[in-house]
């Protein structure tokens, strides 16, 4: 009986060996090899609306919002060391600010969305800033609780339409504007955050994640830098919220829904933690999936959990890292 064993041998594609670094500029072929996956995402996202019907176009708008939240979550968790479950708070604060400005003061979405993005991010950061001394799970718990605080504040005070919400807000001109606003915003955010993590600010934030004591001993106020990081993530979340209230022309307590805090985690794990582009891809896959299961209602949270569990158990590196490996290496079975 022959008892040879097999093992999988992985080899780098020769082209990538040369592609790491400046050498890639030597030939169009190698540059294209590096550019192709990036172009695929950009062109794919920009072209997507052309192939969808009205209903799924709307779904992809929501997917864009989740993508922004997931990007913010990944940035905070993997590059700053803050596990922030405050996605729902960002959406709620951003959504309520732009909705209220629109309904009570009659400002057009073109004005309310930027105000809500920046103002909302400032308010969210202010709310979160006392907890920035907390680390790990403690920060996660507080940030998860804050959206509930918002909900009960609005109910108790009976402001902003209380449980009814405010309807008949101005919407964006048409479905194409709606879609391309969010798609372009996702692409810009992705580009900016990917650049940011390698700039000085990003390096300091990564330093804080690795060893906050050494950063303090290096003469840097870590709380100030954490505030900046939360502000950046909140900008993306609050833009999503402001956009959402104008997308549906309605705002209500469901802006503080738990989905906005939970789905980004699932999307991040699915896409690949720390890859930044991964969470965006994860959100674009996961949102339509959850939409298709709309009939199950709250059971959708179970879906996220199953996705989370499945990926953590069987593919902890996430989609993007897996694809990246397959793209840069080839594998074959060998007899030992």
């Amino acid at each position: 009986m022959d008892t040879f064993e097999r093992r999988k041998k992985r080899l780098d594609r020769s082209i990538t060996v040369r592609c790491r670094g400046l050498y890639a500029l030597n030939s169009w072929r190698e540059m294209l090899f590096l550019l192709a996956p990036r172009l695929l995402l950009i062109v794919g996202l920009l072209a997507m609306p052309l192939f969808l019907d009205m209903y799924w176009q709307r779904v992809m708008c929501a997917a864009g919002i989740y993508a922004l939240l997931a990007l913010g979550f990944d940035f905070l968790a993997e590059y700053v060391g803050l596990v922030c479950l405050g996605g729902a708070m960002f959406i709620g604060v951003g959504g309520y600010i732009s909705g209220v400005l629109n309904a009570y003061f009659g400002l057009p979405p073109l004005v309310t969305i930027p105000i809500a993005t920046i103002g909302g991010a400032a308010i969210s950061t202010l709310i979160l800033s006392p907890c920035l001394r907390l680390r790990g799970i403690y920060f996660a718990i507080v940030s998860f609780m804050l959206p509930l605080f918002g909900v009960y504040l609005i109910i108790a005070l009976g402001i902003f339409g209380s449980t009814e919400g405010i309807s008949a807000l101005d919407t964006l001109p048409n479905i194409w504007v709606e879609q391309y606003v969010i798609i372009i915003m996702v692409l810009i955010s992705l580009f900016v955050v990917r650049r940011l993590v390698n700039e000085d600010l990003g390096l300091i934030l990564r330093g804080i994640k690795d060893n906050d004591q050494a950063v303090r001993a290096s003469g840097i106020d870590i709380t100030a830098y954490r505030i900046r990081a939360v502000f950046i993530a909140a900008l993306m979340g609050c833009f999503g919220g402001a956009y959402l209230s104008h997308l549906y022309g309605w705002l209500g307590l469901s802006l503080f829904a738990m989905d906005f805090s939970i789905l980004p985690i699932a999307a991040t794990v699915m896409g690949g933690m720390g890859t930044l582009a991964g969470p965006v891809i994860g959100a674009i896959f996961l949102t339509p999936m959850s939409e298709a299961l709309r009939g199950f209602g709250q059971l959708r949270v179970v879906l996220y959990s199953v996705v989370l569990l499945g990926f953590i158990l069987y593919r902890p590196e996430g989609i993007l890292r897996y694809l990246d490996r397959k793209y840069h290496q080839f594998e074959r079975w060998e007899k030992v």
Binding site: L203, I204, G207, K209, D210, A217, G219, I220
Partner: peptide, 29 residues
């Protein structure tokens, strides 16, 4: 007034020279 740490915990995800970008961004420098 600066100090070293007894237990070395560098910013392990960064290249060695990028470790110094952090103190170089302090208000003092």
């Amino acid at each position: 007034l600066v100090r070293t740490f007894q237990v070395m915990r560098p910013y392990h995800s960064l290249p060695a020279y990028k470790n110094l970008i952090i103190p170089l961004n302090s208000t003092r420098v």
